[in-house]
């Protein structure tokens, strides 16, 4: 499918796409508004645990660990993206480091 087909798709007209996208983003923003601190608190706590076990200084943690919450349809997906620093590799027992690779 060429990029031009993305706009020409007759069966799924753009108004339908617009509505579906809005349903997702609005419901996400509404839940975030009603519980604004829950996710942020959880993110902060996850970060501090990772920092503790991997020995990453707290001021560096934001660079190496990304915690994202994403809405996929009906579900919220919590995504962890960790770049292990050299020092952390050494600190970990051999087997765990191998599993990580």
């Amino acid at each position: 499918m060429s990029w031009i087909d993305l706009f020409r798709n007759k069966k799924r007209n753009t108004a339908v796409t617009a509505k579906e996208r809005l349903q997702i983003v609005i419901s996400h923003e509404r839940t975030r508004q009603s519980q604004p601190d829950l996710i942020t608190a959880m993110q902060a706590e996850i970060l501090s645990i990772i920092a503790k076990y991997l020995g990453i200084p707290t001021d560096k943690i934001q660079e190496q660990v990304k915690v994202d919450v994403e809405r996929r349809g009906e579900h919220s997906v919590l995504e962890l993206n960790i770049t292990l620093p050299e020092s952390a590799h050494k600190a970990l027992p051999k087997e765990t480091a191998a599993e990580e690779a």
Binding site: N13, A15, V16
Partner: peptide, 8 residues
């Protein structure tokens, strides 16, 4: 189908 409908 180019614009969101009122019902939407």
């Amino acid at each position: 189908g180019d614009m969101l409908a009122l019902s939407d």
